[in-house]
Nucleic acid binder design. Structure first.
Length: 155
DNA sequence: CTTCTTACA
DNA sequence: TGTAAGGA
């Protein structure tokens, strides 16, 4: 974030500005946040498991994206669980694919409604099942999350 | 002070 | 993988 200055507070004026896509995380931050040493991060890069952000111009300084931070985080978790680096990376990537699937699901269902039932309790309306027979709801509260499938309501 | 590469244990 | 060296 060293390149940010007061003149860069463009969020108010640029509604389309993406914080995620403009993050440039240093190897030191990735290391501090994930407890993976800079030595390991450079080694993983050498093995082709992670890639620094393509900085348009100069600077031999490695900068990483939020996605890479998350990937490193998961690889580290699997590594701590005893998997080899190779397998840990595989599992981390599978996890990413699943997150992408979830992302696609909601992106294609922009109409999902989230309503507040009570403090800290919400109901997510997934709409009707494909056969139109049922209404699918997701419930989120302090207890956790659950699904509720109701016969279609004829209002 | 942080990061980089190279090299050695 | 950690660490030292030497420069950026």
């Amino acid at each position: 974030m060293e390149s940010m200055s007061k003149g860069d507070f463009i969020l108010e004026k640029n509604p389309t500005f993406s914080i995620v896509e403009n993050l440039n995380i240093s190897i030191g931050d990735i290391s501090d946040l994930t407890k993976v040493s800079p030595r390991q991060l450079r080694y993983w890069e050498e093995k082709g498991y992670i890639h620094p952000q393509k900085c348009s111009h100069e600077s031999k300084q490695r900068k990483y994206s939020l996605y890479t931070l998350i990937k490193v985080f998961h690889v580290k978790q699997f590594l701590d669980e005893g998997f080899t680096l190779k397998v840990a990376v595989q599992k981390a990537e599978e996890k990413k694919q699943k997150r992408m699937a979830i992302g696609s699901f909601f992106k294609e269902r922009a109409e999902v409604e989230v309503i507040t039932l009570a403090d800290q309790s919400y109901q997510i309306d997934f709409g009707l099942s494909d056969d139109g027979e049922y209404q699918v709801l997701g419930i989120v509260n302090q207890t956790g999350v659950s699904l509720k499938v109701l016969p279609r309501q004829e209002n």
